[in-house]
Amino acid sequence: MTPMEAVVATDRKLAAVLTYLRTALGNNASAVTPEEAKALRDKWQDIKVPVTRAKLEELEEASRK
């Protein structure tokens, strides 16, 4: 199995994976662009451990302030 780091090594590859996840289950979401993938990668670059839903909500709330 390919390591996840190789799958999402570039912003283009990460965008493709995120787009697949957003549309695979019949969702009608738009495609993720490489620029959006880069923004997400930059936002989360310092997080090196698994993140709980509660932590995601906390971080999202903090980003709105």
Results as ranks from 00 to 15, higher is better:
19 T>P: 06
29 A>F: 04
17 V>G: 01
35 E>S: 07
18 L>N: 02
7 V>C: 11
17 V>Q: 10
5 E>I: 04
33 T>L: 08
22 R>G: 07
29 A>E: 11
18 L>M: 13
6 A>F: 03
30 S>F: 09
5 E>F: 06
30 S>N: 14
21 L>T: 05
22 R>N: 12
21 L>A: 12
10 T>E: 04
29 A>G: 03
16 A>P: 00
26 G>S: 11
9 A>P: 03
26 G>W: 02
25 L>F: 11
24 A>L: 13
10 T>I: 00
13 K>T: 03
7 V>L: 15
8 V>N: 08
34 P>N: 01
23 T>S: 12
30 S>R: 15
30 S>A: 15
12 R>G: 07
34 P>E: 04
15 A>M: 08
15 A>Y: 04
21 L>N: 05
34 P>F: 08
32 V>R: 03
12 R>Q: 12
27 N>I: 05
31 A>N: 10
12 R>A: 14
7 V>I: 14
27 N>C: 14
31 A>K: 13
11 D>T: 01
9 A>N: 10
35 E>W: 00
19 T>L: 12
14 L>E: 05
22 R>H: 08
25 L>C: 12
18 L>Q: 08
6 A>Y: 06
33 T>M: 06
8 V>F: 06
19 T>W: 07
12 R>P: 00
6 A>D: 15
16 A>H: 02
7 V>T: 10
19 T>A: 11
33 T>F: 09
8 V>G: 11
5 E>M: 13
31 A>I: 03
12 R>T: 01
25 L>H: 12
7 V>E: 14
25 L>E: 05
11 D>Y: 04
35 E>A: 11
25 L>Q: 13
28 N>Q: 15
21 L>P: 01
10 T>P: 01
27 N>P: 05
34 P>T: 00
22 R>V: 02
6 A>C: 11
16 A>T: 05
23 T>W: 08
30 S>G: 15
22 R>E: 08
14 L>I: 04
30 S>D: 13
5 E>W: 08
34 P>Y: 03
9 A>I: 01
36 E>F: 02
12 R>E: 13
36 E>S: 01
34 P>G: 00
11 D>Q: 01
14 L>R: 11
28 N>W: 09
33 T>Y: 03
23 T>Y: 04
